[in-house]
Design a protein around this nucleic acid. Sequence first.
RNA 1: GGUGAGGUGGCCGAGUGGUCGAAGGCGCACGCCUGGAAAGUGUGUAUACGGCAACGUAUCGAGGGUUCAAAUCCCUCCCUCACCGCCA
Length: 432
Amino acid sequence: MLDIKAIRQNPEAVAQALEKRGFTLDVDAFEQLDARRKQADIDSQNLLAERKRASKQVGQLIGQGMSVDDAKAQVNETLEKIASRIDTLTEEAKQVQAQLEDMLLGIPNIPDEDVPQGSTEADNREVARWGEPGTFDFPVKDHVALGEAIGQLDSDVAAKITGSRFTVMYGELARLHRALIQFMLDIHTREHGYREIYVPYIVNQDSLRGTGQLPKFEEDLFKLRADNDYYLIPTAEVPVTNVARDRIFDDGELGEEGVRFACHTPCFRSEAGSYGKDTRGMIRQHQFEKVELVQLVRPSDSTAALERLTGHAEVILQRLELPYRKVILCGGDIGFSARKTYDLEVWLPGQDTYREISSCSNFGDYQARRMQARWRNPATGKPELLHTLNGSGLAVGRTLVAILENYQQADGTIRIPAALHPYMGDVTHLGG
RNA sequence: GGUGAGGUGGCCGAGUGGUCGAAGGCGCACGCCUGGAAAGUGUGUAUACGGCAACGUAUCGAGGGUUCAAAUCCCUCCCUCACCGCCA
């Protein structure tokens, strides 16, 4: 959520900044609604003040021994009338307030200055490249062909059990998948200063509103068929970031560089609106595993924190010796709540292209304001909004895909990257 | 699922209809005291919105109701704790 004061102060500037992401802010509608809100507030507050004054007088007179009826009569015989007007006025004030709130919740974050202009993926700007895509002296296969050939990947049985966009893995491939999770968590907790955290995979609406999935993107979520408005998490970002909801952190709790959580969870996405896209293989699934990095930092530190966090995700790709590039998302491609996002794209020989494997974002105070995540600034003594960040470190399913495709051998087996050997016992090849 | 007890400020905890945004304590800040510290002592110490300000309004788990007036009474829901049942 944006700071309503900032919008009031300079609505045109906010609107212009939002143009970059193709969002049109209706300044007139905002200003009208805001003016109505203010008037409704003033009107209802005046009446409430009047009632409070009168009620206090009644109380005093009764205290002096007057009968209740006489006291009421003496103070103001129209008190009852005021009561009914209060009802309608406060009701109206509440409604206008809610309308304004809804409008605010629907406005995306303002993109950072670094965010390039552009409307689609094609306008993202590449900022770095690591590693060289390997060359193969045999026809490369994609991960589906590779996994099926060794009898360890099966989407047909998954389709029988559930439906499309699910996967079943067997044997060493399933083990490799599990090994990746351990590997990633170990690196982040041992080398990058993250605290491991285990969280619910089912969350309530307040949490989803806090991180920005609700109210606007409900169609992307799986909602549970129960009467309590629960949803499956689309990413660990939701439960982990909401640890800070309605909390005020002491400065000391933030340490040198903020609070860092690393979390493995499954993620569930409806993928509504992506029919026909990435239908083959494990690239786009309703259920996938991810190791997520979440940081809660002091506002002055979030710009640097995004660089650090992205670096932490990059380390995983580097240790696995997977070629990748780093892009900064353009205004049209950046997520609703993000101020600035780096995508890491891994090289996939089977698709002959780079594909997203991690998305690292700085949300500024946007999520923090929605969820009232604060810290007590020692300089002011006041609670102030934190800044939140998160990034995949990494998407596990896609990492598995990348390993299959990049480490495939002429004989159809798949070599296991050295970094994973400690997690795979004596297994050095899949399908060997 | 059943029964019972609870949800109050950064924390603990009092408050069962009226000058209560809320006693007291802890913590924290500043001062006094001290050679310095501890102890002691004094003062201050929630958030949001509106207002230049004085100040006003709201907030005692959430929502609704009763009343001139609700932290306090009534209803619904959520959560926590204890015991019982069931269960991985």
